[in-house]
Amino acid sequence: MSHRPFHWYRYASPQAFYPLAGRMIPWFWALAAIFGVAGLSVGFLIAPGDAQQGEGYRIIFLHVPASWMSMFLYLVMAFWAGLGLAFRFRLSSMMASALAPTGAMFAFLSLWTGALWGKPMWGAWWVWDARLTSELILLFLYLGFIALQAAIDDPRRADQAGAILALVGVVNIPIIYFSVKWWNTLHQGSSLNLARSSMATTMLYGMLLCALACWMYAIAISLMRARRIMLEREKDTLWVRKELGF
């Protein structure tokens, strides 16, 4: 047993990945809950107020994780979609489709929490600056991807069309990220990059823990949705019948 090589590509078939995903999902929910409780405790109960923004800055513990996830999930989605397009891996395409609704949700939450943060701090619910506009475009890209796949009956064609849209839209992600650096924007620059952070330590930890919670959540729910997609798309196969007790 110990000398058999691990054939990872076995799990590239829906039939093998379905039970594996099923086993992983509870663990990711558990991690999401643990990081969530920790992050929210630090952010909402322990961290001090901000010298500039008072207590309202605490929206950062919700807004930044949502924004990060909206961008990260899009890249992952485009990656799997691209793989599915290039190599015709069915499971890759299913994974891309599984990620889209959650990505759209986080993009919406980024915009919503951003608006509620902007009103007291900037004095406006919304401005057409480069960062906000490109995040709105991201939401539209997600919705366009979902609508496009829903509109096309043939799953293969739907995968291909979605993949093309997803890949074309990838250019939007660096635009969102670098917008505050490249152009004059109302949105402030980044408080965190690999070199330094301009946040107090407690605040930083709260934000990172909440970000981890959202990441674990996204994995859990995407695996759940991927399983559902697998059952739907493979419903005429023997393994699905067996799975359902037939």
Binding site: G49, G54, E55, G56, R58, I59, L62, H63, A66, P101, T102, M105, F108, L109, W112, T113, L116, W117, K119, P120, Y217, A220, I221, M224, R225, R228
Partner: peptide
């Protein structure tokens, strides 16, 4: 939340609702 209660809780409630509704609907 200082004077920012409605904004902070408006974010928290919507985000929590979304992250509960999504798995429930799924």
């Amino acid at each position: 939340m200082g004077s920012h209660g409605p904004y902070v809780w408006g974010c928290f409630v919507v985000m929590a609702a979304a992250m509960i509704l999504e798995p429930a609907l799924l």
